[in-house]
Amino acid sequence: RSRTAFTAQQLEALEKTFQKTHYPDVVMRERLAMCTNLPEARVQVWFKNRRAKFRK
């Protein structure tokens, strides 16, 4: 699988949600996936990586 390049709009939506909660539930992730045209699995991995970045 190749690396996913996120658009500015996708990142904005993801970051906005991350500010609200670092652990979105499956419903919220699926809604984000639909809004951003990304698979739910990519949204889940983005949050996992973003939490790791946040802890540093």
Rank of each mutant, 00 (worst) to 15 (best):
R1H: 14
R1L: 01
R1T: 14
R1V: 12
S2Q: 11
S2E: 15
S2D: 15
S2T: 13
R3H: 14
R3V: 14
R3S: 14
R3N: 15
R3C: 13
T4R: 11
T4E: 15
T4S: 10
T4H: 08
A5C: 13
A5D: 15
A5G: 14
A5S: 13
A5L: 10
A5M: 13
F6P: 10
F6D: 00
F6V: 09
T7Y: 01
T7N: 06
T7P: 05
T7A: 09
T7D: 04
A8M: 09
A8I: 06
A8E: 10
A8Q: 12
A8N: 09
Q9F: 10
Q9W: 04
Q9N: 11
Q9C: 08
Q9P: 07
Q10S: 01
Q10T: 01
Q10E: 01
Q10C: 01
Q10I: 02
L11T: 14
L11K: 10
L11M: 09
E12C: 02
E12I: 02
E12T: 08
E12S: 10
A13T: 12
A13H: 10
A13I: 12
A13E: 14
L14K: 01
L14Q: 06
L14V: 07
L14W: 04
L14Y: 01
L14I: 03
L14F: 06
E15Q: 02
E15S: 00
K16E: 13
K16L: 08
K16I: 07
K16N: 11
T17G: 11
T17I: 10
T17Q: 06
F18Y: 05
F18L: 04
F18G: 01
F18K: 00
F18V: 00
F18W: 10
F18H: 07
Q19Y: 08
Q19S: 11
Q19W: 06
Q19F: 05
K20D: 05
K20F: 12
K20T: 09
K20I: 14
K20L: 13
T21R: 02
T21N: 06
T21F: 15
T21E: 08
T21Q: 07
H22F: 01
H22M: 15
H22Y: 05
H22Q: 10
H22P: 11
H22D: 02
Y23S: 02
Y23T: 03
Y23R: 11
Y23G: 08
P24Q: 00
P24T: 01
P24V: 03
P24F: 03
P24A: 00
P24I: 04
D25R: 04
D25N: 07
D25Q: 00
D25A: 00
D25Y: 10
D25G: 06
D25H: 01
D25S: 05
V26D: 08
V26I: 13
V26C: 14
V26K: 13
V26P: 13
V27T: 11
V27A: 14
V27D: 10
V27I: 13
V27G: 14
V27S: 09
M28E: 15
M28Y: 02
M28S: 09
M28D: 11
R29M: 15
R29N: 02
R29T: 12
R29V: 15
R29Y: 13
E30V: 05
E30D: 10
E30H: 05
R31M: 07
R31T: 10
R31K: 13
R31S: 11
R31Q: 14
R31E: 15
L32R: 02
L32F: 00
L32S: 03
L32Q: 00
A33F: 00
A33D: 06
A33T: 07
M34G: 09
M34K: 14
M34N: 07
M34W: 07
C35G: 07
C35P: 03
C35E: 15
C35Y: 10
T36W: 14
T36Y: 13
T36H: 14
T36N: 05
N37M: 06
N37I: 02
N37A: 07
N37G: 15
N37W: 01
L38F: 01
L38W: 03
L38R: 02
L38A: 02
L38K: 01
L38M: 09
P39R: 06
P39I: 01
P39L: 03
P39S: 13
P39G: 07
E40W: 05
E40T: 10
E40N: 01
E40F: 08
A41N: 11
A41C: 11
A41S: 12
A41I: 06
A41L: 07
A41V: 07
R42S: 15
R42K: 14
R42A: 15
R42H: 14
R42E: 15
V43P: 02
V43T: 00
V43W: 04
V43L: 05
Q44S: 09
Q44P: 05
Q44R: 06
Q44V: 07
Q44D: 10
V45L: 12
V45Q: 14
V45G: 08
W46R: 08
W46I: 00
F47T: 02
F47N: 06
F47D: 03
K48Q: 13
K48Y: 10
K48P: 04
K48H: 09
K48L: 10
K48C: 08
K48V: 13
K48I: 11
N49P: 00
N49R: 09
R50S: 07
R50C: 01
R50G: 08
R51A: 01
R51T: 06
R51Q: 07
R51M: 01
R51P: 09
R51S: 01
R51I: 05
R51L: 02
A52D: 09
A52T: 15
A52S: 08
A52F: 07
A52P: 06
K53E: 14
K53C: 08
K53I: 10
K53A: 13
K53V: 12
K53S: 12
F54R: 03
F54T: 06
F54L: 13
F54Y: 12
R55S: 13
